[in-house]
Design a protein around this nucleic acid. Structure first.
Lengths: 177, 177
DNA sequence: CGCCGAGTTGAACTGAATCAAGAAACGTGG
DNA sequence: CCACGTTTCTTGATTCAGTTCAACTCGGCG
């Protein structure tokens, strides 16, 4: 992922914009349209949505991660997601519509764009598989194996909803060591 | 999806190959490499993999659906998936590597390819969300709403594993009407 | 200090899994 | 076309992972 990320930053530089945000900032609000894709250089963000009043984390983006309102970008409609800064961060922002124009003029970059999408896709496939047949504990361990420092960096409540369990269950899982 | 599917068939015709297969055929076997993408014109297929001996359906592809060994295509490695014909079917087969060459020569089709990928992606997003906070019953109802005839066409065991529940639970859900 | 949100702990409850036994449906060969 | 075996589906009893609700602890911050 990291190499691809770096290449994307380099090759898309002409249409990228660097920005930094503070913890707590809301980069995108549900029910609005946004074509922004954030490439995270440092810090941590998450996207989340509400399910009957309950805040559910859809995705975490740490260093070399990417986050955006995928539904808005793809369907060109208002998004169900919010994007929040969890740690002061430095990001490169890409406007997806600009990207499409840029790709028209630089077809040589199409392959890179495709690869990036594919990585994001495979990530989701893995998560889906985890959700269908792993126990809460196994899902937690899988997450911490992939992102060992995540528990130090984001609140356990957010991790719990990301894993599809309650904060209480997560606490008990963590307790049994 | 349907319109996009039709456009893809038309625009990619030069590199597509029509084929038909009988129920029971195994179009792809795990631990082998395959770059084939099947566009389903009629009939039904599924992809599945094994989790400690248990057969788990990853994806169904009915009319206007698409199926392939995504992991093999993306990572260019042996796949964990099998692809099986559930109903006699007519498909258009696309070799993903050929597609990439074809796209180099026809950059005008890049956008179509991207859209197709995006649809597939959003499908997965929805499924993931369903898995994280819907009950077994709700997931079943969601599936039958989207594909009303699926219960007549594919075995309940396959549907159960697709939904991440046991056949017994599915049977009970269906019984309570 | 004292509050407040985040995390923990406990007890009761519940949705779904498991194990086990039958009942249908299904296709294959006589 | 029927009989048989196999696979698929159903039903029941029990167990278990995870939820819910409620109370309590802790660390930071006004």
């Amino acid at each position: 992922m990291k190499e691809l990320f770096q290449r994307a930053l380099a090759d898309l530089a002409p249409i990228l914009q660097s920005d930094s945000y503070e913890k707590g900032a809301l980069l995108h609000q549900e029910n609005t349209v946004s074509f922004n894709v954030y490439f995270v250089q440092s810090g941590a963000l998450r996207s989340f949505y509400y399910v009957d009043g309950r805040d559910v984390t859809a995705h975490f983006a740490l260093e070399y991660g990417v986050v955006g309102a995928a539904d808005s970008i793809i369907r060109r409609k208002k998004s169900r997601y919010n994007i929040e800064v969890l740690e002061d961060c430095q990001v490169s922002v890409l406007d997806y519509q600009e990207l499409e124009l840029f790709l028209n003029q630089n077809p040589g970059l199409e392959r890179l764009a495709r690869k990036l999408t594919q990585m994001i896709y495979m990530d989701l496939v893995e998560r889906l598989e985890g959700m269908t047949f792993l126990s809460a504990k196994d899902r937690y361990e899988h997450l911490t194996t992939r992102y060992p420092d995540i528990t130090q960096r984001v609140s356990l409540g957010h991790i719990a909803s990301f894993l599809g369990i309650t904060p209480e269950t997560l606490s008990r899982i963590r307790g049994q060591y």
